[in-house]
Structures are given as structure tokens and as C-alpha cells.
Simulated scan of single mutants.
Amino acid sequence: MILRQDADLDTLRTVVREFLREDDIAAGTSGQPRWNPARWRRACTELGLAGVAEPDEFGGAGIGSAGLAIVLEEAGRVLSPLPILGSVVLAQGLLARAGDEAARADMLPALLDGSRTATVALGALRTDGATTQALDATMRAGTWTISGFTSFVLDGDTAAWAFVRADTGDGPQLFAVDTDAPGVSVQVQDSMDLTRTFARLDFTDAPARPIAGPGTADTVLADLRDLLDVAVACEQLAGAEETLRMAVEHIKVRVQFGRTIGSFQAIKHRCADLAILVDDARSALDHAVWALHTRSPRLASAASLAAIVCGRAFGDCARENIHLHGGIGFTWEHPAHLYFRRATSDAALFTEGARHHDAVLAGASID
């Protein structure tokens, strides 16, 4: 089953696409924030981007996962640097799943109006043993503090709050850390993706707020991991569609040997293969969004299948887009390399092949 489109969702897509298209696709300045805070506040107050999936009672639009998927697709189509994946998907998703109503009530209003943003350390979500963080939490005089580091934190240089998973001695627990607090050091890291920023956060007895109760961290993060898989797949599908569109538009007008190169059979076959990949990715993603929206027991397998298929489609389309553009596709001025960089970075940071394949196989056994 998949979610059906309706007039309201079509309108949302049109509005979001028009808003995000106002920005040129370009690499950000090294060491500088990729997005404009004023523009993000406008996106939140005028379009309500941060509240698309939040329930009405929390000040959101109540559209749910289908609306969030549309926002993510349109953001991925133009490689938007706005903190949608880090703040809206990860941070707000964690608050929604943690069950800590006090924390949600305190933080969500500022996240929805765009006055503050938050993020979740990706190291907390990895299951493949990649060493991207080492964090310990200690209770002193009734106050929790955290020491250690976590790296490749999406939008870590601009987030007001960072959610981390730290060891307490009695098991892991989730904490929120104010990045402006004493004992917190933020360093922007180099990344292949020039449209996003990642940072290393170092903590030295930094004050921290526990989120949810002891023993719940891994359950919350497992649920959040499925959401992240679907969210990244949304961006990847749109990126695949856009790079295929760019390639097709180019081969229609590029003339070689007195003919448009799109008339050559070999190039037609390459584009046809990519179109099939994109069509498969759309089917897998539609099913994953349905599973997320309905909280299906098949969510883990559906999300992993979408991650596998959409990631492959984006990578292949981004690479072939450069090849089909010829020499211009390799230039810094053309945006083709930015899509390839995003696809490659996504594969390294968000894709866990073994986990995804295990989840798909496990899902095949569900009655």
C-alpha cells in the first residue's frame, strides 16, 4: 500500500517548491554556516515548515508523515541547506518519541517558530560500530554533566541544542546539551558535501538535561533511525529525479557530429536505465512513507528497502549526470558536482548496508 496524493498535498508541494527555488544551488563558504537564520524563520512562520508533521495540539499543521515527505523531497531537489533534516526530522522526531512532555513543551515552540534549531549527534544512531563519539555522563550535586566528544554532527555549528547518547554507568541515556553552555566547544569539520555543515562537539563537564527515562535511549533511537532512513530516502529520490532531468535536458540540446547526443542509442539506453531506477525508488519510498504514516510493523524493512533503492538511484543518477554533461559536468560552476557530493556523503554518513539488508530480510518473514 502507498499513500494517495490529494489536493492539499499537491498545494503543499507547490508552495514549498516555489519557496525553496528562490535560492540558487551553490556551495557554501568554507567554515561559514550554509543557511540564513532569517530565511529559516521565514520558512517556519510563513510556511510552517518545521510544524508540518507536528500534531495540532503542539502548534503544528498536523499533516503527518506525508507532508514531511513532500518537504524533504523538495529540499533534496534543490540541495537546500536549511536545517530540515537535522532540526525538524532528527531533533523534533526525537522529542516526539522520547515521551518527555516537559522537554517537548520547553523546546518545541522555539523550534517551530525558527528562533532556535536543534540536532541529534549521528554517532548515537550508528549501529555498525563506527567510532564517531565517546561520551560519558556523570551526576554531580543533582546536576548531570557530559564529557567526551561526538563528530560529524549535522548543523552542529548552528544548533542551539544537541541531543546526544551518553553512558551513565547504569546504561545509556539521552541528553540535551545547550551548545552555548560552558564546557562545550564546537569545531566545523571538512565535508565532501558542500551544501551542508558538520561539526565536532567537545564536552568538558558540560551541563546536560536528561531526556526521557533511564533504559529508554536505545528504543527511542531505533524508532528515530527508521524515521531518518525514510527522510534521507526522500531527499535522495528527489535528487535522483533532478539529476536525471538535468541530464535529459542537456542531451536534448547538445550537438555532436551534427546530431543531438540524445539521439544516440547508447545514451538513450543509459537514460532509460536511470529512469527505471528512479521509478523503482519512487515505489519503494511511497511504501516506506505509508509504513511511517500508519506506524506499520513493516516500517523497519520498508525504510531500509527505501534507503537501499533510493541511495543507489541517487548515486547512479548523480554520477551519470556528470558524464552525460561531458566537460561542463566536471566544472566547479555547474551544480552537477554538488549533487554527486551529496549522494556520496549520504552513502557514507546515513547508509548502513548490513543493517538495511538484515531489516529487509527480516521483514520478508513477517506474516
Rank of each mutant, 00 (worst) to 15 (best):
L3C: 14
Q5V: 04
D8C: 02
L12F: 07
R13V: 04
P33G: 04
T45I: 09
E46L: 08
L47H: 14
L47N: 08
A50E: 07
D56L: 15
F58W: 15
G64Y: 08
A66L: 01
G67T: 05
L68N: 04
I70E: 07
L72M: 12
A75W: 09
R77H: 03
R77N: 03
L79D: 14
S80Y: 12
P81D: 07
L82F: 13
L85P: 05
A91Q: 12
G93I: 02
A98M: 09
G99R: 03
A102T: 05
L112P: 10
L112M: 12
T117K: 07
A121C: 14
A121E: 11
D128Q: 05
G129Q: 07
G129D: 06
T138E: 15
T138M: 11
T138N: 13
M139E: 15
T143D: 12
V153M: 07
D155M: 08
T158N: 01
A160K: 13
W161A: 10
D167N: 15
A176Q: 06
D180W: 01
D180Y: 01
G183T: 11
V188P: 10
D190M: 12
S191E: 03
D193F: 03
L194E: 09
R196M: 11
F203Y: 08
F203G: 04
A212T: 06
G215C: 10
A217F: 07
D218F: 06
V220Q: 08
A222D: 15
R225P: 02
R225W: 05
L227Q: 08
A233L: 01
A238C: 09
A240G: 02
T243G: 12
V253P: 05
Q256K: 13
Q256Y: 05
F257H: 11
F264S: 12
I276R: 10
D280Q: 09
D280C: 05
A281H: 06
R282F: 01
S283C: 01
A284H: 03
L285N: 07
A288S: 00
A288Y: 00
A288E: 00
W290V: 00
L292M: 06
S296Y: 03
S296N: 11
S301K: 00
A306K: 10
R312L: 02
D316Q: 09
D316V: 13
C317W: 03
N321S: 11
I322C: 06
I322T: 02
L324F: 00
I328D: 06
W332Y: 03
H337I: 13
H337D: 08
L338R: 05
R341G: 06
A347K: 08
L349V: 14
G353S: 05
H356P: 00
H356M: 03
V360T: 04
L361K: 14
L361S: 13
I366Y: 15
